[in-house]
Write a protein that binds this DNA or RNA. Structure first.
Lengths: 212, 212
DNA sequence: GATAAATAACTGACTGGTCAGTTATAAACG
DNA sequence: CGTTTATAACTGACCAGTCAGTTATTTATC
């Protein structure tokens, strides 16, 4: 037809990232088992065989997707948590706002869904998620709470429990959006939810002396 | 071998419940796609063919599992929420304690995991879960919050947002247990988490006048 | 700087195993 | 002995993973 246009190009550098991006979309949409490698290949604009030039197995590809999706943003928030030299409430508002934005923007929702779903079949993946995401975020908040307690701003009590109280609504909002909004439920404004929640929970966490 | 023992018995009444129970276990453990009908049949003590005497397809069986696992307990909590004629804080403590027990005991965790995972592939199921579980529980808490606001016990603000703040840590605790404890993470005491959380959030939700 | 040879990226048809669903047959029961 | 309940062998579709062949690109040669 058009002899000037080659059927394909050699793009060794760009392929892996493109394949992972395509795989993220398909995996997040249909889940690991229901995702067809042919679909992923088509979405990435390559043949199925090309997938195997860059990834050994379907599980390998899945692992790469998760690792790619999680690493960024975490370290940033983590570092920011303790560096800030402000009152507890102010730091928390800033961090939760930033966290809500990350959750709203990134593909973390779809990836989290997959990890929850496949945790039994992919223990390694669940461990990666635990060590590199869940525990890190939780620990950062725990450290923040402990700092607040040391300063007399936060009431005494298990910091880990408080950390749970702080972040859980954000994650539930995320899951709500992933699961129910496609079904036709009212859309979820995670940012607004986060801001509303943080005010409610702050008045509980702050001691009398730290209240405005 | 033992000619006195029949190879099998006709138990038309008992089979469906047994099959659903077996399916719940296998589905919850491995997810929908990875669950083999042979495994479910073996766990139920029947042949695969027998499954098809009671359920049309694998999806049918999956639907039955979800419907069976969700119905009980919900109505009970729902009714209790508004019937109680006590201060808001007291009702909430009782309800959340009861809810934590239900979450700890029942198989809701495994089912929730499945619904999250397969929401894209089973929109009908996600809708059932939304209408009959998520929204009902949330609405019950919303009604409770509104009642508390009307009585001047709860500070003003979006009741739905507060409901999210109240229940989310319970559900996150549940997911944490489902996903990370099998991986070797520290076990999760949902009851303790719930009690700790409710105190933290109550001091935020209560107006000055309603504080102890 | 044109042409040919060599290399490596990529394709797509194929296969071997798996598994949801079917059916021929048999055992229980009244 | 007729009907219902159950089994177990069977089938056909599906799909992850393979590989022999094709094509873009690079390197060597004149």
């Amino acid at each position: 037809m058009t002899p000037g246009q080659p059927k394909w190009r050699r793009r060794k550098e760009a392929r892996p990232a493109e394949i992972v991006a395509a795989a993220l979309e398909v995996f997040a949409g249909k889940g690991f088992a229901a995702a067809r490698l042919d679909d992923i290949a088509a979405a990435a604009g390559v043949s199925k065989g090309a997938l195997y030039l860059y990834f050994e197995t379907k599980q390998d590809l899945f692992t790469a997707v998760v690792r790619t999706a999680i690493t960024p943003n975490i370290a940033e928030i983590e570092a920011a948590a303790l560096a800030m030299d402000m009152p507890f409430a102010r730091v928390l508002r800033l961090l939760v706002g930033r966290g809500a934005d990350v959750l709203s923007t990134s593909a973390i929702g779809g990836v989290a869904k997959m990890v929850i779903a496949e945790s039994r079949n992919f223990p390694d993946l669940a461990r990666v998620w635990h060590d590199e995401v869940a525990n890190r975020v939780l620990s950062a908040i725990v450290a923040l709470v402990e700092k607040g307690q040391a300063a007399g701003e936060v009431r005494p009590g298990d910091p880990r429990g408080y950390a749970f109280s702080i972040i859980s609504p954000l994650l539930m909002g995320l899951l709500w959006r992933e699961v129910f909004v496609p079904i036709g439920a009212a859309p979820m404004n995670i940012r607004a939810l986060a801001e509303h929640h943080i005010e409610a929970v702050l008045d509980g966490l702050l001691t009398e002396g730290a209240r405005a």
